[in-house]
Design a protein around this nucleic acid. Structure first.
Lengths: 398, 398
DNA sequence: TAAGGGGTTACCCCCGCC
DNA sequence: GGCGGGGGTAACCCCTTA
């Protein structure tokens, strides 16, 4: 949801002004090898004119499956550009070297999420058998200083190998401390590295001297697709998508891997401008999360329990640790007949996903009448529940 | 469910008559170190009088967690007797050497499920640091020829180590074939061994010569608790436990680990004698099994869709590969008002497990009225669904 | 600390689709 | 047939409770 600009390393003390130019709207797609008039915009700024800098034209996708070395036997697809998901045609992470003439080498390697340091995971290039931890390209190509990095993969370094890798790296640099001491330090360092998030680091180098032409740029983070700490949140199936405004009704949902101590179910309502005018949490306890893949929760009461007509709201999963949310699913609070103005009630008030269908929410009118009737309340009887029967929502917050 | 007798090795060509005596009812508990009058029964048979034999007094539990060597750092509880689950006091697998005088060594080791051969997993004895694959005890103790094997664990040998283990074992025995050939044979042999099931093999030996005093006995199989091929089946939560006799309604259930290609949801009805007078399967496809832990299925139609009063049936999980089933959960087919004789309908016709409660089925009267009303049909309207709206149950069979 | 359990890591393999 | 995904298993690691 958050369309953050590609961040220059946030820990770097001297923030380069160039970083302000590296913003790239996710919706903006810049095809490779075609003239890009956007360049003119960047030349329009007086203070930075003529200083070379790198800028990310196409961010990498947010989520990607990191593969272990043992999984590299076959082929499993490469890291794509962020806009590949919205468009049909595939693009790759792309950078441009601006305000530079002559040849240069652009290198790509993996950096940690929180620091500019090298990441223990390995950037892998298809069909290239180099054992470096980086991928290189030369600009200009066809006269253009833009280069897309295609065919890259991320090889997941086994956790147990990380301390050794760091030790190797620092062994010659740090001769002043004992091996034993260094080993302990490397072990501590290893613990601080998040193996589920990497960033791409692009740097530009003089083709003959290898000297850096400008400051490197860092991509937005790429999250491991298989970890419950960083994966994509998703509501796959939901047992009911309507209910009473007083709440307190059980809903069974099937979800992609979640951590039971780090998940919320959020109900919210949007106004016509798309602003959230009401939110509340579904109530459940960690024990109601079944093996990371399913949750039973109780619907929260709507802000007005005496609504006279149905209200459409949304349900989403939210992960407190990083603020990520799932795609929302629709939910409808059904007006109780006693408060309803119209005596005509709708029959299509509730819905249910069918076993035969896949996870996506169906149009209500697609559903067989039998199913749409299942969860209706016996509204002809018009029974109002005693207040004491509505269980208190125990909102669970991390 | 099946109360099989402890089986003498079924592959043995000459079946020992003693095996007929080794039957031990699961409900029968023989406390250790107390006189056992049952012995008299066994002495009553003319043909076998005075021949020594081993008999299992207490079977091991059906399900146990096999631990990897890497998990043996702490302690995780030992293998118990089968009747420990029904009683409070713990018992251990126990054998008795009958018709023997003088001292003897009783050994216990792991055997494969289908053959009397040694199992690659390792029997482990607490506080004993022996690297044997067996546990030994000496009888008589306190004058009694019964011995309980306490403090045993099962160490799961890694699958990849099995061929090597077999090779080691056969290397000196089979000098007539080449190492290469033997290696291949060991690899094939390894594939045929079920690592998720073991049996205990008890043998009695002369204390000085180590010669076997009688044929060994084999316990009932012990299943690995963590594998979906052998674990305990369980329905943990169920979104509804009542429905229409015509079936076709969605039910969401949370289950313990299952294999989507090897699981069925069975509805059945019992008569007053406990015989299954009707069975039908819930319909779903492998894709409706969510990550091994949850299933959406459609209820089957009851044999009579025009029942005039509610019918209580049961739902269970069934695993075709080994015929195992879960504990059943109750389900009620609700008579449609049009066919009902009585005009008084029950309000407690449906139920739902509450998020706050654990998995076990609650008494219907325990449930809050609000919840019990959720899934009722709008029976006041008395709408009969057109036949075409009822989806055909697509019974999935392995 | 014993006794049980759930979750994570690393690995292995299966699909549907070109 | 092999790409581009994806789910399941094996092995390991750690957490709850009492």
């Amino acid at each position: 949801m958050s369309t953050t600009a590609s961040d220059q390393d946030s820990d770097s003390s001297s923030r380069s002004p160039q970083s302000y130019y590296s913003y790239c709207s996710p919706s903006q797609q810049v095809p490779q090898l075609t003239p890009d008039l956007n360049n003119l915009i960047y030349l329009d700024n007086g203070s930075k004119r003529n200083r070379p800098f790198l800028r990310i034209i196409e961010q990498p996708q947010d989520y990607f499956r990191f593969r272990y070395a043992s999984e590299m036997a076959g082929t499993h697809g490469c890291l794509l550009g962020k806009s590949s998901s919205t468009n049909k045609n595939k693009v790759h992470p792309t950078v441009e070297l601006v305000n530079y003439t002559g040849q240069a080498v652009i290198k790509c390697q993996l950096a940690q999420h929180k620091t500019p340091e090298e990441h223990p995971h390995k950037l892998f290039e298809e069909e290239q058998d180099n054992d470096d931890r980086e991928v290189s390209c030369i600009v200009p190509k066809q006269g253009i200083y833009k280069v897309g990095f295609g065919g890259m993969g991320i090889i997941h370094t086994a956790k147990k190998n990380v301390p050794g890798l760091l030790f190797q790296k620092y062994a010659e640099k740090c001769k002043n401390i004992s091996n034993k001491e260094l080993k302990i330090q490397c072990e501590n360092m290893a613990k601080s590295i998040d193996l589920n998030i990497v960033r791409l680091k692009f740097s530009a180098h003089d083709i003959s001297t290898d000297r850096e032409i400008c400051k490197p740029v860092f991509s937005e983070p790429i999250h491991s697709l298989k970890s419950a700490a960083s994966n994509d949140l998703k509501i796959c199936r939901i047992s009911r998508c309507s209910g009473r405004p007083v709440g307190g009704e059980d809903v069974y949902i099937f979800v992609e891997k979640v951590n039971k101590k780090n998940i919320q179910i959020r109900f919210f309502e949007l106004d016509e401008n798309g602003h959230r005018v009401w939110t509340a949490n579904g109530s459940f306890m960690p024990g109601d999360v079944h093996h990371q893949y399913a949750i039973i929760f109780r619907t929260p009461a709507y802000k007005d329990t005496k609504i006279s007509k149905n209200v459409n709201v949304y349900i989403e999963l939210a992960r407190p640790s990083d603020g990520r949310t799932s795609e929302p699913k629709e939910f409808k609070y059904i007006a109780e007949p006693i408060y309803s103005n119209s005596k005509k009630r709708r029959m299509n008030a509730s819905c249910s996903t069918s076993p035969a269908s896949s996870g996506s929410l169906k149009s209500i009118s697609d559903l067989p009448a039998l199913v749409t009737l299942n969860n209706n309340f016996n509204d002809e009887n018009n029974i109002e529940m005693p207040k004491t029967e509505v269980l208190d929502p125990l909102t669970y917050v991390l």
